[in-house]
Computed example of a mutant assay.
Amino acid sequence: MSVARRTGAITPRDISAAKGSTPLVCLTAYTTPVARLVDPDCDVVLVGDSVGMVLHGLSSTLGVTLEMMIMHGKAVRRGLERALMVVDMPFGSYEEGPEQAMRNAARLMAETECAAVKIEGGETMAETIRFLSERGVPVMAHVGLTPQAVNALGGYRVQGKGLEAERIRRDALAVAEAGAFSVVLEKVPETLARRITEDVAIPTIGIGASPACDGQILVVDDMLGMFTDFRPKFVKRYAELAKQAETAVKSYAQEVRERRFPAPEHVFGE
């Protein structure tokens, strides 16, 4: 049975078994209300370190801390019943080695009650992914454009063009072999994402990748149009909430200044 038809809580094993089945629906969430909103229709809800940029105004994900991920993870957990909850391990919380990664992953899982963590990196992280997987920590991997390595990569550029394609492919194969239950492919050429999806035994989750991937993920604020000045090529806007919010705020401000709000129906009698 496809994950889309499950009525109970989804597990990492369910996601792994969805390879080649109905595409997996994945979105980010950082708060309880948004978690409740996306839960009925999503298979995976990621508490991404993108929260640093989306909610905290940081210029990158590098300033996100473990404490921030725990705080937002707890909030999202309160809003989920069905979707698999995955929490990003932030920059600096796992790169030293498997033991450091295990300590911090265990803390994330214990304090947020998430079912899995996500780690950026390919071949260099394979040993850590294997270490965690063998000790009961399900890992979603992330290769291609890895935002935590944005300085080393020279910006938010497409990864895997030309001769670099084989490196990204090796990364995906390495994390799959190490025990990851799925892998995010971010901002890679469509043909490469399609090839990797065919080559690896675990589901691929695309973001700026290919419709051939086993699933897709977007930052929820991006697809809802919560920003008026941010339109990456790989995001389709399914709403324009920022424009609607701007209109609503202007209407509110005008009514307050003209003493038309609150109206009689909004105040209390004696």
Rank of each mutant, 00 (worst) to 15 (best):
A176P: 00
T7D: 08
A116H: 04
S2L: 12
G208K: 02
V158C: 06
G144L: 02
L185G: 07
T22I: 15
A18G: 09
A152H: 12
I217Q: 02
P98Q: 02
T11H: 09
S59F: 11
H72F: 06
T228F: 01
E111N: 11
H142I: 04
K236G: 13
L108D: 08
Y30A: 04
D43H: 03
E164M: 02
I217L: 01
M109K: 12
R169V: 09
S182C: 12
A209E: 01
D222W: 06
D14P: 07
G20F: 13
T31V: 08
A116P: 03
K236R: 15
A193Q: 09
G179F: 04
R78A: 14
P211K: 10
L153N: 07
V47M: 06
K243I: 10
P138T: 04
A152Q: 13
A141R: 00
A75I: 01
R259F: 12
T65P: 06
E246L: 10
S182Q: 08
V183L: 02
H56A: 14
G215D: 10
C42E: 00
T128C: 15
G73M: 00
K118Y: 04
V137D: 01
P90F: 07
V117E: 04
P264F: 11
S251T: 11
G215N: 06
V25D: 02
P203L: 04
P147T: 03
V86E: 01
F268T: 14
T65K: 11
A242P: 03
A212V: 10
A201F: 10
G57W: 11
G179Y: 03
V44D: 02
G20E: 15
E198L: 08
T32R: 10
A165S: 09
